[in-house]
Amino acid sequence: MTATLEHRLPKSRQALQPGTIEARDFSFWYGKKQALNNISLIVPPSSVTALIGPSGCGKSTFLRSINRLNDLIPGIRHEGDLSLDGQSIFDKDLDVVALRQRVGMVFQRWNPFPKSIYDNVAYGARINGVTRSSELDEVVERSLRRAALWDEVKDRLRTSALGLSGGQQQRVCIARALANQPEVLLLDEPASALDPGSTQKIEELVYELKRELTIVIVTHNLQQAARASDHTAFFFSGQLVELGPTDQIFTRPREERTDAYITGRFG
């Protein structure tokens, strides 16, 4: 399955900008079960790409492949290639730890550490060797501001992150990921367990952040995909059915299955 016209693979790799994710004939197996089948696509930088599709279609697997979080699962294997800025993420010389610092991730269920808000956000910076407290303060403030949370928590930075509301905890997780200054941010259904108000805040945040980094978001919420993303990829049983500009996918899908999914006839 190849991507659609607008997203055909570039002829020269020099054309790639920082934060570009490229999949070439990427297939993925959990044991004997094939989860992804020959995915080829390009996620352009400084934009939001939404991955949509019914449960089990492989969109989360694809997302978790980008920062190699699937490595933890025993019995996995892949074929084809995934690259970030032209470098294969499976390259033997590539440090997976460094990769994950360049590719931040936010999960469906917010998962702050049972620590203070400050320590949560400072976590990534600390492992990168930042120890001076003035420098850490700066990283924490900048990251919380970027996550649009600073004003709500600036007077309680030393209190437990677990005492915040769900939406705030999720934004702590976003701030925590941003503190590493990633090129790419992966969002795995970041708002599916949040109320509409908090969801809106996250979507506004995504809109703000895409100016600086590449965002890939998995969502079951089609309105959210339509509102928040520039490009939409429709996955179905491990295959990439269609990829295109979001307005085109939602108004003039080329594929029958895409049309059926976005109009709610299955999924």
């Binding site: 730890v97 460094a98 998962n111 049972p114 990534g124 990921a177």
Partner: peptide, 27 residues
């Protein structure tokens, strides 16, 4: 200790041994 905490640390670029030690063990 929830897998989600382990994944959070790994996704932040924590090496596996440090994740086990400073996140999983501490929790």
């Amino acid at each position: 200790v929830p897998t989600s905490l382990r994944e959070a640390a790994l996704a932040l670029g924590y090496p596996k041994w440090r994740t086990s030690l400073s996140v999983v063990l501490r929790t």
